[in-house]
Simulated scan of single mutants.
Amino acid sequence: MVDNVKLFIYADKEVELKHHLATIVTENELQYSIINLNHNYAHFKTYTLDEPLPERMKVKEIIKFWCKWYSSSLASETIIHKCNLAIFSQKRIKKLSNSELKLLHIAKLVIVPESKFIIKEPLQNVTIETKYTIINLLNELSTSNTIISLTNHTEEALLISEYCYRFNKNSFKPIALSNDNSEKYASSIAENQTHLSRQPIRRLTVKTNEKTMFLDPIDIDYLESQDGKVVIHVGDEQYIHDTTLQNIETLITPYGFYRCHRSYIINLQKITEIISWSKNSYSIRINTSKDTLIPLSRQKAKDIEQFFNIYE
């Protein structure tokens, strides 16, 4: 078994990962930053899973070539069977679908004599069947290798590994998940909003992929009311919370949030600009990967200016 690994997240900063199959949820730009920082790091091999392959070769031919090139102890037929490539093993690479091509790239990881991998978006744009083939392969590989998967989607991260981290420009920290008992406890808490309103919280519980995620309020950009429920915006992802904006306002206001509109609660730390369209029409720009504008009234704009000691 390989030892715990240290990973560069900045040129002058490392983090230690104690698990042999871990996922990091971060935006595309930071994914490439991690790849570039660690590309030449000792014993790390990085894969974006979109490197060009010889288009005229058949799948069976390139698997056989890789087995020979890397002196694999596994026969090419074994690789084809293990990685579920048989059904398209006679297809030329240029005719492969996105799912087939990504699975072929993953199959290469089974062959190469490396012990530490960083891979980018292994489950993106693949079929459900391919997705679970890849998940099984990564879990099997992690018994003798360290695999760090980079993705922009928390749900995909949770499918790959229970050891997930969220990385942005300000922090690198684990994504808290509950076990079965904790899920029942979280459900019980959700049913007692009155009691909760008197308790300080450090997480918001959100159900996703049959698991309960605990969102740190600091990661939340803003919350929006839609169809009687609350949509929580975290980066490029959205989570549905089965409550009202009024109920959640009581819980989250102590953590630097403000009800700027009847349909919106914003994280004051994420505000980058207040825009004045007219005497009584304003918008807030939020610091996200998208150009997000949130409406607010003149009075709400004055309140926010007071929060930041801005005076006319």
Rank of each mutant, 00 (worst) to 15 (best):
V2W: 09
V2D: 09
K6H: 12
F8V: 02
I9M: 06
Y10E: 11
L21Y: 07
A22H: 12
I24N: 03
V25P: 02
V25I: 06
Y32G: 09
I35K: 01
N36A: 11
N36M: 12
N38V: 05
N40L: 11
H43I: 06
T46Q: 02
Y47L: 14
D50L: 09
L53F: 07
P54D: 10
E55V: 10
R56L: 11
R56C: 09
R56A: 09
K58A: 06
F65M: 09
W69C: 13
Y70R: 03
E77F: 13
I80L: 01
L85G: 00
I87E: 12
I87Q: 14
R92Y: 12
I93N: 05
I93C: 04
I93G: 04
S97C: 04
E100Q: 13
L103N: 02
L104F: 05
L104A: 01
H105Q: 08
I106H: 03
I106A: 00
A107F: 03
A107N: 00
A107Q: 04
K108C: 00
V112S: 04
E114H: 08
F117W: 08
F117M: 01
I119P: 04
I119W: 00
K120A: 01
Q124V: 11
I128M: 13
I128L: 14
Y132D: 07
T133K: 00
S142F: 07
S144W: 03
S144M: 11
S144N: 15
N145H: 02
I147C: 03
I148R: 04
I148G: 01
L150A: 06
T151Y: 01
H153M: 14
E155Y: 11
E156S: 09
I160F: 06
S161V: 01
N170F: 07
S171L: 08
S171Q: 13
D180N: 15
N181L: 12
Y185H: 13
Y185S: 03
I189P: 00
I189R: 11
E191W: 12
R202V: 07
R203L: 14
V206E: 04
T208E: 04
K211D: 05
F214G: 05
D219M: 07
D219F: 09
E224R: 05
D227C: 07
K229A: 11
K229V: 06
I232L: 02
I232W: 00
V234Y: 00
E237W: 04
Q238P: 05
D242I: 12
T243M: 12
T243E: 08
T244Q: 14
Q246P: 08
E249C: 13
T250Q: 11
T250F: 08
I252T: 02
P254S: 12
Y255E: 04
G256M: 06
Y258C: 05
R259D: 02
Y264T: 01
I265W: 02
N267R: 06
L268E: 05
Q269D: 13
E273G: 12
S276W: 12
W277C: 06
K279S: 15
S281V: 14
S281F: 06
N287F: 10
N287V: 10
S289L: 15
L296D: 00
K302V: 01
K302N: 08
F307P: 11
Y311K: 15
E312K: 05
E312M: 08
